[in-house]
Design a binder for these strands. Structure first.
Lengths: 226, 226
DNA sequence: TCTTGTTGACTAGTATGCAAGTTTTCGTGT
DNA sequence: ACACGAAAACTTGCATACTAGTCAACAAGA
């Protein structure tokens, strides 16, 4: 989770963390699921120790809930935590686009444009998975454009909280087109160095999650902790 | 570091973490200092295990640098990391005051006012330590006022990176008065629900660190990793 | 004197066993 | 049948031993 700048060396802990992270965010492991250090250790063929360290990392990301002497569970959704994650992501990304609008790294412009084209292709192919990946990359490029690459780590962390929820909601073609339009408008605002418009577009973009999250809350309340 | 909402139970890891955290941020442990799991374990009377877990927590906060099979050191200052921490803190806190200006929890107003008065007292007494604590509390109150208490966790985390640096710079009475004036102007802007002014005041407030950090960089370059 | 190779004292990563506390199960008494 | 209590089967927290890799000191050679 971007704590060390160099790759150094991949440890058992890293492998276990990556695997569990993907399974939790991909809802392969549902919220509330009990998950035992011993069991995971057996299934991976490692001892409890690296599993334990992977668990603490995941708990730091609010993906696991570890309680002394009690079973560790995949953290249920929490409207508070989701609101917090969205707040943080919005705060960071808004400052990113404000910075980008004022002093942009034009070397990234080509990548942004090419990302937009690829997004169009994904929409034409109705490939929601590809579009999701491109969306991830687009927001990463925004941070690069503002010369704040590190900022994307925080955005990604908080995005994961919400993404885990949104797996429950199928993305329609119209939704993708809306998001694409936002992206396009955002790039244009940045090129025109109009921080005000960029901020407005981004706020609207991020707020599009509101109805989706509300809908999931009503249909999947069992996965929430409230 | 606000990963679990309930207090649950204080573990050995918690105690070691708290102690080391205070010593690192207070510069009792200087940047670059080698710090061994075994030695710390001995001095605390625990085994390596809880020390190890405390270390990983501190590494997550960018206060320690852990490298496989190499000595763990107190993380040297890094202008990049400091810039990052300041960026994140600014982004969060700006969004906090914008929210506060639009819909404020008036129940916190009394606390803000009383904090301002206490700050005046600390200045009169030339008590920099007390003022620093009050400053910490003031910014916490701002988050409460915006109904975003959790946001302060992130602010505090990133503030710590910078605070660790600023211990090297003695706070003068004039500096305190400037900061106090900022605080006062900020509260007034919030009461007038003027988000624009509040944002400007806060940006200026946070930017007052610029010359201080530059000065420390020139005078204490040995503590930096560049 | 300077360079280089070897050796030994470090380091963190991992495995495993025990302790302390929680949850579940199941049998007993009403 | 139901309530209750004891015990067994879990859980994580912590201690300790071992492994593999890094670094520093020092001796031998140029």
């Amino acid at each position: 989770m971007a704590s060390t700048e160099t790759v150094d060396r991949v440890t058992s802990t890293d492998r276990i963390f990556e695997e569990l992270y993907a399974r939790i965010v991909g809802l392969d492991l549902l919220p509330g699921t009990k998950i035992s250090e011993t069991d995971v250790a057996k299934s991976f063929g490692y001892s409890r120790q690296p599993v334990r360290e992977a668990f603490t990392r995941l708990a730091n990301l609010n993906l696991l809930l570890i309680r002394p002497q009690r079973a560790t569970i995949v953290r249920p959704f929490s409207r508070d935590l989701i609101a917090n994650a969205r707040f943080v992501r919005a705060a960071i990304e808004l400052e990113v686009v404000r910075n980008a609008a004022q002093s942009r790294d034009v070397a990234v412009d080509a990548d942004l444009k090419s990302s937009l084209r690829a997004q169009q292709d994904a929409i034409a192919a109705e490939d929601t998975k590809a579009f999701h990946d491109l969306d991830y990359d687009f927001h990463r490029l925004l941070c690069l454009s503002a010369r704040r690459p590190f900022a994307f780590d925080l955005i990604a962390t908080n995005k994961a909280q919400v993404d885990r929820l949104c797996v429950l909601s199928l993305t329609s073609t119209e939704a993708m087109e809306t998001l694409y339009a936002d992206h396009k408008a955002l790039v244009q605002a940045l090129q025109e160095e109009d921080a005000g418009v960029a901020e407005l577009v981004l706020r609207q973009h991020l707020n599009r999650l509101d109805p989706i999250i509300d809908a999931i809350y009503t249909t999947h309340r069992t996965y929430f902790d409230e």
